[in-house]
Nucleic acid binder design. Structure first.
Lengths: 341, 341
DNA sequence: CGTTAGCACTCAGTTTGATCGAGTGCTAAT
DNA sequence: ATTAGCACTCGATCAAACTGAGTGCTAACG
């Protein structure tokens, strides 16, 4: 357990370091005013804090910087999550005032605004489709052998896919198939589509067309395939403004990671509800061992729809980012709720 | 007009510099073997080439590097566009063997493979829609006030958009509208959609629904709006492997530019047919004044469909990139032709 | 006993200066 | 016309010296 004075000093060091990106010395803390002790006293406390693993020294004659553990303590116990600034609120309001119908627009705008307000990189996962239902299905023939399959979900999300038609399927057949599917599948949750397809559609389909097997298979892969949510990135280059990322190689590792969808998915995998802070090596991926990732779910009626996140240096303005994510995730949830209805 | 010897020397310098990224001295050229003159002679020629503006010296006691004008001369007169390597061909073949139906997949894969084979950044513009025709139109209601409009083009491209429905439009009306539109607009080129909408659809529409004006307006914005081609980027971080881009600020400028769609469009605006090389300051954008951009159109029946491009340092392997772009743009045209049919 | 002033010590960062060597331009010889 | 030779230039590299922020320890202070 830390003493009140130790907590004050740790707070001061983290705050200062977040601002300046430079090791914080005892003198500069003493001069700040809010910790009214002499440098010597502060030095003693700092030595203790270092022994506890909360601070570290880049080298003997430098000031202290927070360790991962130090940031963790700061985030868990010391942080003051103030409301967000007026300017920020105004900017967000302005953005919400724009009339946007498609959730893609909303989500990508959210990503943009997040990265602009924080100067970090924002990553937003679009709503997952798995708990939505099918609203409408359509097959549009392109030529003799292929067609475009279009799926509209209850949330207004549209997926499309070009499929190859089995031979001997005519225009009439297609219309019948489409009608049948809309009849049977409309309102069915995506997770159940596969079983319904087998249980109810199969028999009826065999009455209509010959090459029933092929079509069923095609439909299955079309309808079941597309579970992965879309990823929106913004401000990927913002890390480069941070002094600790002056080195091109470090930056490249991170940006390469951001270009790879599967890695990003891994990063966001299984984030628990609410706001989650992962500092430095707490992240699973080596590439961002010097970064912190803060994520927040947005949900509807207890069901998590998607995630928004901010990636920045470990020396990140945690307070600001957390309050922003909190605000925007709720906003996003609100929007989705409106569409969900 | 350059002498044969000057041309040889210029070629040698450009080739060497492309390989090594270091100023090329007279000795090293003499030693290469293919220019069998003494360093002194070569030095004299180099001085002449510098006077002509084809070479420049970073500082007095350094070797020469090609100037923009030097690269230009090299590209226009000296370059040997060899065929592409066997390995590359094999890799492309392997990629073509994969069965891909959607053009989005093909185009994005093309971008990926281009960046992998060249280690530069590839930018691919998806086929423009303006010379395609409308194949199918659909309106799927989501709730009382909004619906998803879906457009399928003759090339199998799908666009969708959420629209707000005017009040008092019922399910029946929607079906009628959709039928009418498919009847009137199927097969109509996109450029003509707007006029057909006014000339033929307007009157008929007024017979069906009351709020004809609103709907017509909505349809117009939906159908006419979406002209801009999609952009596929790959290997954006590859510039960082180039020694001349060890500086984070330079890189940031370029990557920032790549994140901005309008800037990219500006870059690709009005590229003439065939293969186009823009070296350094020949590019319109300040951010890539130290880069070269090579672009190639892919077309079908004389009509340009889209563009593929490679962005790299001015010190780029022009020969390789040009032959690769040539090969792949033809491949892409072939694929599109198949889909077009 | 907690706090603080004083002081020797440490060490990264910067400056300075010397050295190195790749490469040039010029001149004179071939 | 070509080339060998040579003085010269100038960035790059390295070590030595210097600077100063910051520490840890000790002793004095209230």
């Amino acid at each position: 357990m830390l003493s009140e004075r130790q907590r004050m000093i740790l707070t001061a060091i983290v705050d200062d370091y977040i601002r300046s990106a430079e090791p914080v010395g005892s003198r500069s803390i003493s001069k700040r005013g809010d910790v009214a002790f002499s440098p010597a006293t502060i030095r003693n406390e700092m030595a203790d804090l270092e022994e506890l693993g909360l601070l570290e020294q880049p080298h003997t004659s430098a000031g202290r910087i927070p360790s991962i553990k130090g940031y963790r303590y700061y985030v868990d116990h010391l942080i003051r999550v103030g409301g967000i600034g007026e300017q920020d609120v105004r900017k967000i309001r302005g953005f919400l005032a724009e009339k946007m119908n498609m959730w893609e627009e909303v989500v990508s705008h959210t990503a943009t605004i997040l990265s602009q307000l924080t100067n970090y990189t924002s990553i937003v996962l679009g709503p997952e489709t798995f708990n939505t239902t099918l609203k409408h299905f359509q097959l549009v023939p392109i030529n003799e052998t292929s067609a475009v399959a279009i799926i509209v979900t209850s949330t207004g999300h549209v997926e499309h896919k070009t499929v190859t038609l089995p031979e001997g399927v005519g225009m009439n057949d297609i219309q019948k198939i489409v009608n049948l599917l809309n009849d049977k599948l409309a309102g069915v949750a995506f997770v159940k589509v596969k079983s319904v397809l087998h249980a109810e559609v199969g028999k009826e389909l065999s009455r209509i067309v010959d090459s029933c097997e092929h079509i069923l298979q095609m439909l299955e892969s079309t309808l079941a395939d597309d579970q992965e949510p879309r990823i929106f990135l913004s401000g990927a280059t913002n890390i480069m403004t941070q002094p600790e990322f002056k080195d091109v190689d470090k930056v490249k590792n991170i940006l390469d990671m951001l270009e790879e969808t599967p890695k990003l998915m891994q990063l966001f995998q299984a984030v628990p509800d609410g706001i989650q802070v992962r500092i430095g090596t707490e992240n699973a991926l080596e590439a961002i061992n010097q970064c912190s990732l803060i994520t927040a779910n947005y949900s509807y009626e207890g069901q998590s729809l998607g995630t928004i996140g901010i990636l920045g240096p470990t020396r990140m303005d945690y307070g600001k980012v957390i309050s922003l994510l909190d605000y925007l995730s709720k906003d996003l949830a609100l929007f989705m709720a409106r569409r969900h209805k």
